[in-house]
């Protein structure tokens, strides 16, 4: 059997060139994200990755998705990761080669298995593929009569699949609540104080926190000795 069996639609050369250059850019940025050790660079490259993704979404006719990806991926998500990085570390420690090898083998095997299955997938741009045949075309045909707004994506999002969207809004609400429970709207969640036997204990002076701090400083001392 050949790897690329069911093949028909191939795009025109200019479209192909644009798509392939955007994809190559995506792959390069993704590899750079893997290689970088400075978390600042990783976060910035992720913004670049999202922006290139958004450009490719426009080329793939998904203008609404491109809009969202550009606003969310390159805007809000980058700011969030930066502010989380400010509260955590700036650099990641290097991972030794022997720890990387197992992951690399697993990933290669999984990737090869998926590449093997590519031959069974419909061609890129196929109008008669199962995914493009049934309900999607029905929405396109009926929106003009039943909802009468030109943007089919909004019609499907709001009307035909209102249940889905309701679920998504509830998930966003729950995620927001989760962040507020973990960190607090004013940044004060988890800063607890207890007064057992008249003695003040808070999150900094609790036994567990002191323990973690001691270990950290001892580790640093040890590694410093080993280096010198």
């Amino acid at each position: 059997m050949t790897l690329f069996a069911a093949a028909e639609p191939v795009f025109a050369v200019p479209v192909l060139l644009l798509d392939i250059s955007l994809m190559a850019l995506l792959v390069v940025v993704a590899f750079a994200i893997v290689r970088m050790r400075s978390l600042f660079a990783v976060v910035m490259l992720q913004g670049v990755y999202s922006l290139v993704c958004a450009a490719w979404f426009v080329s793939l006719d998904a203008v609404d998705v491109a809009f969202t990806e550009a606003a969310v991926g390159a805007g809000v998500s980058t700011v969030l990761m930066l502010s989380a990085m400010l509260l955590a570390d700036r650099k990641s420690t290097p991972v030794p080669m022997n720890r990387q090898l197992g992951a690399f083998i697993v990933v290669c095997l999984a990737g090869a298995a998926m590449l093997w299955a590519v031959g069974d997938m419909p061609a890129f741009g196929d109008a008669n593929s199962p995914a493009n045949s049934y309900v999607g075309t029905d929405y396109l045909a009926k929106t003009a009569e039943e909802v009468q707004i030109p943007n089919v994506v909004t019609a499907v999002l709001g009307s035909y699949r209102g249940y889905d969207t309701f679920g998504e809004v509830v998930v966003i609400f729950a995620a927001g609540l989760g962040v507020l429970l973990l960190l607090g709207l004013n940044g004060n969640a988890g800063r607890w104080v207890a007064r057992p036997n008249g003695q003040v204990v808070n999150d900094r002076s609790a036994p567990s926190a002191a323990y973690a701090k001691d270990n950290r400083s001892e580790d640093k001392k040890k590694s410093g000795e080993a280096e010198t």
Binding site: L60, D61, A62, D64, V65, T68, E69, V72, G73, V76, S77, L80, M81, A84, A131, N132, V135, G136, T137, Y139, L140, V152, V153, V156, L157, R161, D164, T165, E168, V171, I172, A175, G176, G178, V179, L182, L183
Partner: peptide, 25 residues
């Protein structure tokens, strides 16, 4: 082009950033 995957992914992106925020928290 088929609008249905666009709708699914549109909401998934916004949910994705909300869950990313949970992870970061």
């Amino acid at each position: 082009s088929n609008p249905l995957p666009h709708v699914l992914i549109l909401t998934a992106i916004v949910v994705g950033v909300a869950t990313l925020a949970i992870g970061l928290a």
